[in-house]
Design a binder for these strands. Structure first.
Lengths: 140, 140
DNA sequence: AAAAACCATATAGTTACTATAAGGTCAATA
DNA sequence: TATTGACCTTATAGTAACTATATGGTTTTT
């Protein structure tokens, strides 16, 4: 009998460090191959499923969306094409991340300068922060 | 008659630069005071509603959550308390934003170095990016 | 009178899960 | 043997902050 070391969903979850529901969710989303079932209906996973899951998780840690991961997986199924598509997916993602950083930095500046408009020793009525939000001065 | 310049929802929306559904949504969430109704059931807004909405929108541009905005509004209703609560809400938010920036920068570094592992002139089979995600080298 | 533009409510969709409900299966214990 | 506990199953709802859609009433314009 080939395939002696099959796992149930709980074991796979522990192996990868993820919740069982998340595994079912990925299957439902078409990201993880549907496993065989035992006679009782329990899912029966192989090492391959563990690798697929790990791939997905690594992509998620890179903040790739499930749609992007889907795209990468579909590329994997057609290995004899140029990989420029993969690289441009990544380039786009990097540029997204950079845009996010830039706008968060601008936000940080706004918040810090807003914060500077009040100390803690006032009453809410005269709070500089609230006043600034309600009625901003020129320097925005 | 006091209150000669009342608006319908569409006019308010245009004034603030927002969609009508968003206005109804804020009302439903308890962020915007429910307006009077005309005889036909249409909402009838005053200048005050415009100001409330502008306040909410400014907060949202600072990326404050609706819950945080709710909190700020509740402070506004009790003006004779120390405003330290407002300031610490803001401090917490600033620290959140900084955390986000830091982790996005780390992410950017990872993505850039991942991207460096492949040029566009390969086939998917030998794509360095895919290989790295599937089976990362030490330098992570 | 009919069409266009506006208003109303209720409901579903978005993302990537997480949580809950209601129930079936299995191993070990009382 | 009965039952407890841990595990599994599916289906459904909740999260955040809207946005979009369906369905229908009202008002204004043509």
């Amino acid at each position: 009998m080939l395939g002696g070391r099959e796992m149930r969903i709980g074991q796979l979850a522990q192996l990868v460090g993820i919740e069982t529901q998340t595994i079912r969710f990925y299957e439902q989303q078409g990201l993880l191959s549907p496993p065989d079932r035992q006679e009782n209906g329990y899912r029966s996973y192989t090492k391959m499923h563990g690798e697929q899951l790990t791939f997905i998780r690594r992509c998620r840690k890179l903040d790739l969306s499930l749609v992007e991961i889907h795209e990468l997986l579909s590329y994997q199924k057609h290995p004899h094409q140029p990989c420029s598509a993969i690289n441009s997916l990544l380039d786009d993602h990097i540029s997204d991340v950079r845009t996010q950083i830039t706008s968060l930095q601008a936000l940080e500046n706004q918040l810090v300068s807003l914060r500077a408009s009040c100390s803690n020793e006032r009453e809410i009525e005269t709070c500089g922060v609230l006043a600034e939000i309600s009625d901003p001065k020129i320097h925005s």
